[in-house]
Amino acid sequence: MTRHLEICAASLPSALAARAGGAHRIELCQNLEQGGITPSYGLIRETLAQLSIPVFVLIRPRPGGFVYSADELAIMRADVEMCRELGCAGVVLGALDAAGRVDLAACRGLIELAGPMAVTFHRAFDACPDQVLALEDIIGLGCQRVLTSGGQPTATAGQTQLAALVAQAAGRILIMPGAGITAANIQALANQTGAREFHTSAKRRLPADPADGLFQAERLETDAASVAELVALLQVARTL
């Protein structure tokens, strides 16, 4: 079984580190500290120019929940069109209604605009109270994968549900565990869930530069060595 690692990168240096470490795909975003939002046009364009591995772009206009206004959906549609025009390999999106079900109309409109790009339904899925129904809805929309922690704060905590989702999917869609995946748990998750793709940021904290004075700040960036370790561990995880 071939297993792939997707790295969530919130900057060009992180995207380059992911490539250097052997990641199979990038999910590009910004503001990762609040769960990620859509990155800027410039970041998308430069990342595409410098990477040959697939780049998927997060379509999320703000932090917080996934019930969107008409104005927010208009922004999301424009961002999907931008990604298609720039030549992105895929987009990562999701929208819910007030009851916590997949907003089929909103998602269908975004997916239609995506055209040839692949579509991942993101962790809005983890806010759905009925994941069995939500998964069938997402399959019906034509998405290629679901990023999920099994409805729990971490993939490790949700591994039983993740395994159930993999079984329910039965090859119709990829279930991609994410949230808290590290070198310490990725093999166990691979072995216990049967998932083929995994998502993490593999980030390390860079200290603030005192030379920046009033504007100094710590940064979180993907670490190439951590990515390489995760890729290596995935390749030797046993097959269920």
Rank of each mutant, 00 (worst) to 15 (best):
L5A: 02
E6Y: 03
E6H: 06
I7V: 14
A9M: 10
L12P: 08
S14H: 04
S14I: 04
A20W: 00
R25Q: 02
L28R: 06
C29G: 06
N31R: 11
Y41N: 10
G42S: 14
F56M: 07
F56C: 03
I59F: 13
P61L: 01
F66L: 15
A70D: 15
D71T: 14
L73A: 09
A74P: 01
E81Q: 13
C83S: 10
R84K: 13
C88L: 08
G94W: 12
A99E: 15
A99V: 10
R101Y: 05
V102D: 09
V102E: 14
L104N: 09
A106K: 09
L110R: 02
E112P: 00
M117N: 03
F125N: 03
D130I: 04
I138D: 02
I139C: 12
T148W: 11
S149P: 04
G151E: 15
G151Q: 04
Q152R: 15
A155T: 01
A157I: 09
Q159A: 11
Q161M: 14
L162W: 10
L162F: 12
A167C: 09
A169G: 08
I175A: 04
M176L: 15
G180N: 00
N185D: 11
N185Q: 14
A190P: 10
N191R: 14
T193E: 01
H199I: 02
S201V: 02
A202N: 06
R204A: 06
R204D: 03
L206G: 03
A208E: 13
G213A: 09
L214N: 08
F215N: 11
Q216E: 13
A224R: 12
V236P: 04
A237E: 15
R238S: 11
